[in-house]
């Protein structure tokens, strides 16, 4: 039974949280990588776009809750998602119209876009704080657990509990659905194909009559959806705090670069690589190893490789290793 206990412990404290976190990062990184592929710049405002979209979802959720509308065992926020996405899409399209289009027409160098995105980041950040404040907001409702500690113990008779929060399950399900729809869109529809063509070779795409503004508009719409969903899932799973979303920028970028900037598959892989590394390295593995190893070899310390405060260091180290060994990322992204 010992290895089984080790597996359950590992699943409880490492695999389940990392899968959920990895899905959130993957959705965030998909947004970054799409903007990079189509608009060709690193969007520093992405974390704050997520915060903004989530804020719209939270406000709608509160409205629904006070109107007495719920979603049964599922969180009400899922019902509010379309509204949040619409608001975020309006914001992103407006931003593109006011800020980015000007530089696109001028064929400005990518770094100008990046600096513009810094300004956009400030504005979004200030706006989000202006409306909802800087404090933690919890907006998860519905059932708390899919698998509770007691339920698992009663069902299996194992000593070690396994807990799966319903938010974690929802995260994974939603992420799978979103990714499936996104890939279907990119690979099967005319618009999706034109987006990929534009990303691969702008000149050839223009030559074959693809309307660049249309491609850009669709990109922002998709990014609004991805960012809002990623932000809402993260907020449901943990909690919503504007500054945390700003800080998510680092692991999200790390995921996108590790996977290869501009490669959607890479963004997903990168998200899970970063999430698993972060959770494994900052979790005290004593219990797991204690089950795996014979008594005499069991570790004395916690075997926590790094304290949780250093979780940014993990994404950073993976990033550096990938940059040194394979600068284009795991899935051969663009390297301009």
């Amino acid at each position: 039974m010992e290895p089984l206990h080790a597996l359950v412990t590992l699943a409880n404290f490492v695999i389940v949280p990392a899968v959920a976190y990895g899905s959130q990062l993957a959705l965030g990184a998909l947004g970054v990588t799409l903007i990079y592929g189509i608009l060709r710049f690193s969007n520093f405002a992405h974390g704050d776009t997520m915060a903004f979209g989530t804020m719209a979802v939270i406000l709608t959720t509160w409205g629904l809750q006070s109107a007495g509308i719920g979603f049964g065992p599922l969180p009400t926020a899922l019902l509010a998602l379309p509204v949040g996405i619409a608001v975020a899409a309006a914001l992103l399209l407006g931003t593109d119209r006011v800020v980015y289009r000007f530089y696109r027409d001028k064929k400005a160098v990518p770094v100008t876009f990046v600096i513009a995105s810094l300004g956009v980041m400030f504005v979004y950040n200030g706006f989000t704080r202006f409306v909802i404040g800087v404090d933690d907001q919890r907006f998860a409702d519905g059932a708390r657990f899919l698998v509770s500690a007691r339920g698992f113990r009663d069902a299996t008779g194992l000593d070690e509990p396994l807990v799966i929060k319903s938010t974690q399950a929802i995260t994974v399900v939603v992420a799978v659905v979103v990714v499936a729809v996104l890939f279907w869109f990119l690979n099967r529809t005319r618009t999706g194909k034109s987006m990929r063509a534009y990303s691969d070779n702008e000149d050839l795409a223009l030559l074959s009559g693809i309307n660049p503004e249309r491609v850009v508009t669709y990109t922002w719409l998709i990014v609004a959806g991805l960012a809002t969903i990623a932000g809402t899932l993260y907020g449901l799973d943990k909690s919503f705090k504007p500054f945390t979303y700003f800080q998510l920028l680092l692991p999200i970028f790390a995921a996108a670069i590790v996977g290869g900037l501009g490669s959607p598959i890479g963004a997903i892989a990168g998200g899970f690589v970063i999430a698993f590394a972060e959770v494994t390295i900052t979790y005290p593995l004593k219990k797991v190893l204690g089950y795996f190893l014979p008594e005499s070899l069991a570790p004395d310390g916690l075997v926590q490789l790094l304290s949780t405060d250093y979780k940014f260091a993990v994404s950073f180290m993976i990033l550096i290793i990938v940059l040194l060994i394979r600068p284009t990322g795991l899935f051969r992204g663009k390297s301009v």
Binding site: P110, V111, L250, F253, A254, I257, L261, F312, F316, L323
Partner: peptide, 24 residues
């Protein structure tokens, strides 16, 4: 590590090192 690669990589690398220094 990051110079000589594309410009965005320096940006991300510096963003990361700043967070790590503060965490430290």
């Amino acid at each position: 590590t990051a110079l000589g690669l594309r410009s965005d990589y320096l940006a991300i690398a510096t963003l990361g090192i700043a967070e790590i220094i503060i965490a430290m």
